[in-house]
């Protein structure tokens, strides 16, 4: 659906993206993840034909974004950052205007506006003035606008920014729903959002892609050794000795926690799952165990590690 090759965009004085290459297949929900200024919005603006790249090519549905801009625009539903809307229009009127602007016939635009009003839960506010709506509703109006011409690809730039937790949840749900019929490219710097909604993640920084994979694969790639957390009631010296004698433990740490329990954090050597061994050990010694769990790298850890690795050589 999207093929980007060697894309570079230079603004006066600095380079926003450098030799960016990636592809997005049909039906995927892809998240562009990166700190502010990583080049996410620039990439999206180029894909949506708002401005051209300095060099390189980008194709959407097989069409070049620069030379076939109008055809590409028909294929894309784009919601820019901060979701700009005409504050003085009413919801239905605005969507009708947008549908007509995107070339839909009078009858078809009326039908489509009804469909997207339903789809985005805007039926109740269709006659209200956009400027008077809450932020959550405005965001849905933006989404409805992106959907109104039935685009094959939907590009959303930070769709949940500035919303309260409930609104974020409903917008995410909506995006997930969209993923069933459309290809979706969203950008964000909120990690759980990507974890919850996306099937693939592109981590960007300084205009380059640092990592690209599904959230699960990224996690397992980072999970060289597993982390175990156990709360054990035992004499400190004995526990220390037992852990030292355990075979697969790469490193461990013991700290007191509430009650008289000791909190042990263990890192196993590659691939080893220490949970059974810990349980056996406790059972054998007759200690007490009240918590035993494996912690995985969260996407947040991955993100921090990937972006740090990038910084270190500099």
């Amino acid at each position: 659906m999207i093929e980007v090759a060697e894309l570079t965009k230079r603004y006066a004085g600095h380079t926003a993206i450098k030799n960016l290459s990636f592809t997005v297949r049909k039906g995927e929900i892809v998240g562009l993840l990166g700190p502010n200024g990583a080049g996410k919005s620039t990439t999206m603006r180029i894909l949506s034909c708002f401005m051209p790249a300095t060099s390189g090519t980008a194709r959407v549905a097989g069409l070049d974004v620069f030379s076939q801009a109008n055809e590409v625009r028909r294929q894309i539903g784009y919601m820019p950052e901060n979701n700009p809307l005409h504050q003085d229009m009413r919801v239905r009127e605005y969507l009708k205007f947008r549908a007509r602007l995107k070339g839909l016939s009078r009858v078809r635009s009326r039908d489509r506006v009804d469909v997207v009003l339903q789809q985005c839960g805007l039926k109740d506010v269709s006659k209200k003035i956009i400027g008077q709506l809450s932020k959550g509703y405005k965001q849905r109006v933006g989404l409805a606008d992106a959907l109104v011409h039935e685009p094959a690809l939907i590009i959303l730039d930070e769709p949940t920014i500035g919303l309260d937790p409930n609104q974020i949840r409903s917008v995410r749900q909506l995006i997930k729903e969209l993923g069933k019929q459309h290809t979706v490219l969203i950008s964000t710097h909120i990690l759980p959002e990507v974890e919850m909604t996306c099937s693939r993640v592109l981590i960007m920084r300084h205009g380059k892609i640092l990592a690209a994979d599904s959230p699960e694969n990224l996690q397992s790639r980072m999970d060289k050794g597993t982390h175990i957390r156990a709360e054990i009631l035992a004499p400190l010296a004995d526990l220390q000795a037992s852990l030292e004698s355990m075979g697969n433990v790469e490193q461990f740490d013991i700290a007191p926690c509430e009650g008289d329990y000791l909190l042990c954090s263990l890192t196993g050597s590659e691939g080893a799952d220490l949970r059974e061994e810990v349980f056996e050990m406790v059972k054998e010694k007759g200690w007490k165990l009240r918590d035993l769990s494996r912690s995985r790298y969260s996407l947040e850890d991955i993100y921090v590690r990937v972006t740090r690795q990038e910084e270190e050589p500099n």
Binding site: I76, P84, Q87, R98, D145
Partner: peptide
């Protein structure tokens, strides 16, 4: 100033 220029210029209009 409101940013609607971007939504306008990403529709198929010359």
């Amino acid at each position: 100033s409101t940013g609607t220029f971007e939504t306008l210029m990403t529709t198929p209009i010359s």
